[in-house]
Simulated scan of single mutants.
Amino acid sequence: MSELQCGCPGCHCEVDPERVFNHVGEAYCSQACAEQHPNGEPCPAADCHCEQSGKVGERDITNNQLDEALEETFPASDPISP
């Protein structure tokens, strides 16, 4: 069985298949990594500091915020165009 690498930029953790966090088709080692550390939450691995990665810090918006914004732009009550 091949090991899964966490999808968080800068994270070097392997994803535990019994405790995987999925987001947009990628596997992550923790909820904090899946959300790209929106409030600087640390990686659960003591020797990993991916929350300090420049790649994560470059984002102005979290994945959850993107998901919420997308949902708000497509309300189910929109009328059908003629």
Rank of each mutant, 00 (worst) to 15 (best):
D78Q: 14
N63V: 15
D67F: 12
P42N: 06
C50G: 09
C11H: 03
M1N: 13
L70Y: 06
A45F: 12
E51T: 04
L66G: 02
D47A: 07
A45P: 08
R59P: 06
C43D: 04
A34S: 10
G7P: 03
V24T: 13
C13G: 10
E3L: 12
Q36G: 02
A34W: 01
Q52E: 15
S81C: 08
V15K: 02
C11N: 10
C29Y: 00
V24I: 09
Q52S: 03
D47E: 14
C13Y: 05
P42E: 00
D78K: 15
V24E: 08
Q65N: 05
R59I: 01
D78I: 11
V20A: 01
T62K: 01
E14S: 15
V56I: 12
C11E: 04
V24G: 05
A46N: 10
S81F: 01
E71R: 08
I61R: 07
C33D: 00
G40P: 01
D78N: 13
N22P: 02
H37R: 00
I80Y: 15
E14M: 14
P17V: 09
A76E: 15
V56K: 06
A32E: 10
V24K: 11
E58V: 13
F74H: 12
C50E: 02
E18S: 15
E14W: 14
V24D: 09
A69W: 13
S30W: 02
Q36W: 11
A69E: 14
F74Y: 15
G25D: 12
A76R: 13
N39P: 00
E72T: 12
E68R: 05
C6P: 02
S81G: 02
Q5Y: 09
H49M: 03
S77N: 15
V24S: 07
Q31E: 04
S2V: 11
K55N: 01
K55P: 08
R19Y: 01
C50N: 00
C13L: 03
E3Y: 13
T73C: 12
T73A: 14
P17K: 03
M1Q: 09
F21E: 05
P75T: 10
G57Q: 15
V15I: 05
E51G: 08
S2D: 09
A34L: 08
G57C: 08
N63C: 01
E72N: 15
V15H: 04
A76Q: 15
Y28L: 10
E58P: 07
F74T: 14
C13S: 07
A45G: 05
E51I: 08
A34I: 03
I80M: 14
N63G: 05
Q36H: 14
E35F: 00
E26W: 02
E68N: 00
